[in-house]
Amino acid sequence: MSSNLIVGAAACIIGVIYTVQAFYLPKAPIGDPLSPIYFPAALGIIMLICGLGLLLTEIKKGVYRNKEKGKTHRKNKKTITLITLTVAFGLIYAFIFERFGFVISTTLFLGAIFFLINGKRKWTINIIVSLVFSGSIWYVFGKLLGISLP
């Protein structure tokens, strides 16, 4: 599927959901009760129109090419794994950030990312950079800039 088809379809879906949600928004207690709704409703509808426009122009062009090759596929798979893991680490980081404090959670998070993309073999660099980073940021922010971190 071409990227434009995906974008068009996604825009249509977002447009519909957003418009429906917009009409369910609470009414304003004073003035025109619909005043908070006009702008979002217009956005949703224009989004739907844009999505349909993109879909139609793509279908008219008649592009249903399937040109995915094995090599790019494997590369994509690796990228997706890396991104998924990074997001997962990010979620864990968010979870432990205030519980463990800045320095510990950040060292763990960065360390995990380093092991993920820099490899296990360079573990010394990974650990040193993570420690130095979180330590120095904590120092610069907390002591020099006066921004408190947990």
Partner: peptide
């Protein structure tokens, strides 16, 4: 589409004129 997405993001939150959460 990109612009509309941005505008949609900006509508999240309490509406300043009516006080209605959106």
């Amino acid at each position: 589409i990109s612009m509309l997405l941005g505008l949609m993001i900006s509508t999240v939150g309490i509406d300043l004129q009516s006080g209605v959460p959106r």
